[in-house]
């Protein structure tokens, strides 16, 4: 293992922001793994730290197949993490919306350019990411439909679901999208949490990455086979929105099976405690995403459901 600073940004009042990369093995650039890019992605940082711990151990036991280099960058924006901010604290911009970056541009474009320069040209790119809507997911691998995506490769992580998202204009500046444009096979791995550590899904994510690297011939590691993934087009998910605002009581969680007409959650009057609305499932299926915060507005997405097809 080689630990090195892959990008440094000096700060007027703080220690410099040093972005650290861990290089395992040597030879052709096989896989690059990026952890936390936003300051609240603590779970993503944790997953990466556990992965680095495991890769250290595997490297010592000679388990990295020769002529393979694996790069792991656990954290990009700890300057924000250390002060409890999600985005770049000076101008509130999101480093994960600045890719591929520009080394003569604004500060966060320079950070993105510095990171991208290091992470591009790998055969596989894996990012532990978080979504722009707050809530929980079933652990899954997400890919952008760029024309370069390869869903059968995503299947090799052995997570239960692979979601393909049609990129919207705003997605074109994310790491995942630009990796693909630069011909890296890019995957975003979503576990169930962001701001807090969830041991169970963290272990699942570490195993999924090790399984993938093993199946790609980069590692020699005995992993159990995992799931055969269902591949889902994000647009096929059934969306359940609120038609009232108030206190949200979640009754169904990601991964649970639900039936049409079943009550998924309740909205309570915030003063009088009465249930003012029931959130009812419009379909049979599995909960893929659910709102988690205790409050909801009107017209908010509270559930996304993988529809079960009747045969």
């Amino acid at each position: 293992m080689k630990k090195e600073v892959i990008y440094r940004l000096d700060s007027p009042y703080r220690e410099s922001l040093d972005i650290t990369g861990y290089r395992f093995g040597s030879g052709k650039k096989s896989a690059c793994i990026v952890g936390s890019i936003r300051g609240n992605e603590v779970q993503q940082l944790y997953v990466c730290s556990q992965l680095i711990k495991k890769l250290k151990e595997l490297e010592q036991h000679g388990a990295i197949v020769s002529d393979n280099e694996i790069m792991v960058i656990p954290s990009v924006n700890h300057h924000s993490m250390n002060i409890g901010k999600r985005f770049w604290a000076v101008d509130n911009t999101d480093v994960n919306r600045m890719f591929p970056g520009y080394d003569k541009g604004e500060t966060t474009q320079r950070i993105a350019a510095g990171v991208f320069d290091c992470v591009k040209n790998y055969n596989y790119g894996i990012q532990f990411a978080s979504f722009y809507l707050p809530g929980d997911f079933v652990p899954h691998v997400r890919m952008m439909e760029t024309g370069y995506q390869n869903t059968s490769l995503a299947n090799l992580f052995g997570l239960p679901y692979v979601v393909v998202r049609k990129p919207r204009p705003i997605d074109t500046t994310t790491l995942n999208y630009n990796w693909q444009v630069w011909e890296t096979n890019a995957f975003s791995v979503y576990t169930s949490e962001t701001d807090v550590v969830d041991e169970v899904s963290a272990r699942q994510a570490v195993s999924a990455v090790l399984r993938f690297l093993t199946r790609m011939g980069i590692l020699r590691y005995n992993s159990h086979s995992g799931y055969i993934a269902s591949i889902i087009d994000e647009e096929e998910l059934t969306i359940v929105k609120t038609d009232a605002a108030g206190i949200f009581r979640r009754l169904k969680c990601p991964g649970e099976e639900v039936h049409m007409g079943e009550v998924l959650g309740e909205i309570l009057d915030p003063y009088e405690g009465e249930v003012i609305r029931q959130v009812v499932s419009p379909t049979d299926g599995i909960i893929f995403f659910s709102h988690k915060k205790p409050l909801v507005t009107e017209s908010e997405i509270v559930f996304k459901i993988i529809r079960r097809l009747h045969e």
């Binding site: 009232a244 605002a245 108030g246 206190i247 915030p270 003063y271 409050l295 909801v296 507005t297 009107e298 017209s299």
Partner: peptide
């Protein structure tokens, strides 16, 4: 006009 959680609309 959109309902906010507690006694207000956006």
């Amino acid at each position: 006009s959109m309902g906010l959680p507690v006694d207000e609309h956006l």
